[in-house]
Amino acid sequence: MTSKLIIIIGSISGAISVILGAFGAHALKDSLTASGRLDTYETAVKYQMYHSLALILLGMLMLQFQHKFLNYASYLFLIGMVIFSGSLYLLCATGITKLGAITPIGGLFLIAAWVLMAIGVGKTAL
């Protein structure tokens, strides 16, 4: 992926997380509170925003540093966000608790992305 595309995707994902956060705080608050899933929903929104910002940072880093691990990290961030936050959003929407078992897989992708980003920058000459 190009650095420009990564920054665009991160920006769009950040906007979506703000929209979903506002939707959860207003339109869904009563149902999320009644189901005991408000904290779960907030976690999904927070992690989506954190990793949207990580994608923007990664895209900016790629303007200065070129390493294949940075590109790999971009894919892992995207996959991790979809699996981690997506599984939590689905859990909140459907109440299917088995979806919670998928969430840690997304977390592993996110951890791997952070590690690859560090290695990718570390392996490049300053």
Rank of each mutant, 00 (worst) to 15 (best):
M1F: 12
M1G: 05
S3H: 12
K4V: 15
I7H: 08
I7N: 03
I8K: 06
I8Q: 09
I9Q: 13
G10T: 06
I12C: 08
S13I: 15
S13V: 15
I16Q: 05
I16T: 11
V18K: 15
L20T: 02
A22K: 12
G24D: 04
H26M: 07
A27V: 11
A27P: 01
A27R: 10
L28V: 11
L28C: 09
D30W: 10
D30I: 14
L32Y: 05
T33G: 08
T33M: 13
T33D: 12
A34E: 09
G36T: 09
G36F: 10
G36C: 09
G36K: 12
L38R: 14
D39K: 13
D39P: 11
Y41F: 15
E42G: 15
A44S: 13
V45D: 01
V45N: 03
K46T: 13
H51G: 02
A54V: 08
L55D: 01
I56T: 13
I56N: 04
L58D: 01
M60S: 14
M62E: 06
L63S: 12
Q64C: 09
Q66Y: 04
L70D: 01
L70I: 06
N71Y: 15
Y72E: 02
A73N: 00
S74M: 02
S74V: 05
Y75V: 14
F77R: 00
F77N: 00
I79W: 03
M81R: 06
I83V: 13
F84L: 07
F84I: 08
S85A: 09
G86S: 15
G86V: 12
S87H: 05
L88A: 05
Y89E: 03
Y89G: 04
C92N: 06
A93F: 10
G95D: 06
G95N: 07
G95E: 06
K98E: 11
G100Q: 09
A101L: 11
A101W: 13
A113I: 00
A113R: 00
V115G: 00
L116M: 08
L116F: 07
M117V: 05
G120D: 01
V121H: 01
K123Q: 10
A125Q: 12
